[in-house]
Structure formats: C-alpha cells, structure tokens
C-alpha cells in the first residue's frame, strides 16, 4: 500500500487534477457509450413494438 491517508491518496502528490481527470474522462466516456447504446436499444424496441401491433 502506497498511501498513509485518504487525503494523500486524493492529492496524488499534487497531480490530482491530471490523474483524476484522466481516470474520470476514461470511465466517463465508457459510461457515456453504454448509456448511448441503452438509449439506442430502447428506441429500437419501441419502434419494433409499434410495427408489430
């Protein structure tokens, strides 16, 4: 374990903005992609249902 306290962990040796920014953007983009796909499949399901009935 590298860290002695939560604050030290969050500060990332002064690189907090860059490190957390990078991780945030990476996983933010992945989550956004999943959300877009969820929207897309909902839209398809709705369109298909409308066509079926």
């Amino acid at each position: 374990m590298q860290w002695h306290s939560v604050n030290e962990f969050l500060a990332m040796g002064g690189y907090a903005f860059y490190v957390w920014g990078s991780f945030g953007i990476t996983f933010g983009c992945m989550a956004f992609e999943l959300w877009l796909l969820k929207k897309r499949s909902q839209r398809i399901a709705q369109a298909v249902k409308q066509e079926a009935f």
Binding site: F9, G13, Y15, Y18, V19, T26
Partner: peptide, 25 residues
C-alpha cells in the same frame, strides 16, 4: 487493474504520482 494502478504500484521516481495516468492512457 485500478487497485494495482492506484494502490500497489510504487511512485515513479521521475514523474511522481502523475505517471499513474498510463494505466488508462
């Protein structure tokens, strides 16, 4: 991977903690 990257991996002697970006980059 996040656990290794953020908790296990040691500080880089040249780049400090900033190098941890490589684990996603």
């Amino acid at each position: 991977g996040l656990y290794i990257g953020l908790f296990v991996a040691p500080t880089d002697f040249q780049q400090g903690e900033g190098y941890r970006i490589i684990f996603v980059h």
